[in-house]
Amino acid sequence: MKLSELKPGNRAKIVRLKSSDFLKRRLMDMGLVPGEVVYVEKVAPLGDPIEIVVKNYHLSLRKNEAEIIEIEEVK
């Protein structure tokens, strides 16, 4: 499953970041590393971007950026 598909109010663990370029590095610099648990807080009024909570802070990213993050849902 991709982070872009996770519904607000749900929690998931990062499995892997696909792609290999600048985007991946940036996401990892922001704390989105494999093993990290993220929570989807909300989606912007027009459907994109999304707001997530990671490492106790709030981060927003576009859906096409969240797409490279592979996750598994945590109940």
């Binding site: 600048f22 940036r26 709030h58 981060l59 927003s60 990213l61 950026e65």
Partner: peptide, 10 residues
């Protein structure tokens, strides 16, 4: 120059 959005909401 591909820009990204990734932004902290402080």
């Amino acid at each position: 120059m591909k820009p990204v959005f990734i932004m902290e909401l402080p």
